[in-house]
C-alpha cells in the first residue's frame, strides 16, 4: 500500500476512486468494466454496482432497525432501541414542525429517511479505506469497490433530483399550476402597474429559474464535495508509512464524525425548507 513510487501511488488513488461499473460496452457487450477507460466507454447506460449495493444495503439496514423499533413501540416505558430511535424521530419531527406551518404526513418520513440514510452512507467513510476493497478484490475477485455511496455523484444527485421532483409536485399540488408558475414569474420584481408587471416577467423567470435549478444542484454537490474530499484525504493518509498513519487518520476521522453528521443534517434541513417553500404561499 504505502510509498512504492509515484506511479503506484497514482494507481492506488485512481483505483480507490473507481466505481464498479456494469454496463453495455461497445466491444465487450454487457460486462463489468475492467478499467476506467472501459467504464467511460459504457456511457450513460451503465450502473455503479458498488454504490447501489451499499446504498440499498444501508437503506435496508436503516428501515430494518427502525421497523424493529416501530413494531415494538409502546407509549409506556421504552426500551433502549426504542429510546434511540425515538430520539432521532423526535429530533426530525421537531425540525419539521419548526420549519413547516402546514401539516404534512409526508415530509416527516422523507426527512427521517434522508437524515439516517445519508448519515449511514457518509458513515462508511469512517471504515478504514482498504478494509472492504481489499476483501472484495482478494477474496471475491471484484476489481473495484467504492464503499462510500455519497462520494458518488450519481447517488447524491439521485436523492437531490428526487427532492426537486417532490418540490415541483407539491408546489403544483398546493398552489395549482398557475400559482406555481406565478411565483416564478412575478417574484421578486413586481409592480401595481399591469404593463410593468408583465415587463418584469423575463427577469423574474430568469432569476427564479436559476435559483430553483440551483437548489438540487447545490444540494447534491455540497454532500458529494464534502464526502469526496474527506474520502480523498483518507486515501492520501493511507499512502503514508503505516507507522505514522494513525497520527493523521485519527484526528481526521474524529473531525469527520462531525462532518458526516453535519452533512446529513444539512441535507435533511434543506429538504425540509424546500418542502416548506413548496407547501406555503409567500
Amino acid at each position: 500500500m504505502a510509498g512504492e513510487g509515484a506511479l503506484t501511488s497514482t494507481g492506488y488513488i485512481q483505483h480507490h476512486l473507481q466505481n464498479l461499473v456494469f454496463g453495455l460496452h461497445p466491444e465487450n457487450g454487457l460486462s463489468i468494466a475492467k478499467s476506467s477507460e472501459e467504464a467511460v466507454a459504457m456511457g450513460f447506460w451503465a450502473i455503479h454496482l458498488d454504490s447501489l449495493f451499499w446504498s440499498v444495503t444501508l437503506g435496508a439496514f436503516f428501515l430494518w432497525l427502525f421497523k424493529k423499533a416501530a413494531d415494538k413501540a409502546t407509549s409506556g416505558v421504552p426500551g433502549k432501541l426504542q429510546n434511540f430511535v425515538e430520539s432521532i424521530v423526535e429530533f426530525v419531527d421537531e425540525n419539521v414542525n419548526d420549519t413547516m406551518s402546514v401539516k404534512s404526513n409526508f415530509v416527516g418520513p422523507l426527512a427521517l429517511t434522508i437524515f439516517v440514510w445519508v448519515f449511514l452512507m457518509n458513515f462508511m467513510d469512517l471504515i478504514p479505506v482498504d478494509f472492504i476493497p481489499y476483501f472484495f478484490e482478494h477474496i471475491l475477485g471484484v476489481p473495484y469497490m467504492k464503499v462510500v455511496p455519497s462520494t458518488d455523484v450519481n447517488v447524491t444527485f439521485g436523492i437531490s433530483l428526487s427532492v426537486f421532483a417532490l418540490m415541483i409536485y407539491f408546489g403544483i399540488k398546493m398552489k395549482g399550476l398557475g400559482g406555481f408558475l406565478g411565483e416564478l414569474a412575478f417574484n421578486p420584481f413586481t409592480s401595481d402597474n399591469v404593463i410593468i408587471k408583465w415587463l418584469f416577467v423575463p427577469f423574474n423567470v430568469l432569476l427564479e429559474g436559476v435559483s430553483l435549478l440551483a437548489k438540487p444542484v447545490s444540494l447534491a454537490l455540497r454532500l458529494f464535495g464534502n464526502m469526496y474530499a474527506g474520502e480523498l484525504i483518507f486515501i492520501l493518509i493511507a499512502l503514508l508509512p503505516w507507522t505514522v498513519q494513525w497520527a493523521l487518520s485519527v484526528p481526521w476521522a474524529i473531525f469527520h464524525i462531525l462532518v458526516i453528521t453535519l452533512q446529513a443534517f444539512i441535507f435533511m434541513m434543506l429538504t425540509i425548507v424546500y418542502m416548506a417553500m413548496a407547501h406555503e404561499h409567500h
Partner: peptide, 27 residues
C-alpha cells in the same frame, strides 16, 4: 460519470421513503 445509477438511486430512495412513511414513521 452520470449514468443509470442516478435513476436506480432515485427509485430506491422513493421506495425507502414510502416504506418509512407507511411502516416506520406512524407507529
Amino acid at each position: 460519470n452520470i449514468n443509470l445509477t442516478l435513476i436506480g438511486q432515485a427509485i430506491s430512495f422513493f421506495i425507502f421513503v414510502l416504506f418509512c412513511m407507511k411502516f416506520v414513521w406512524p407507529p
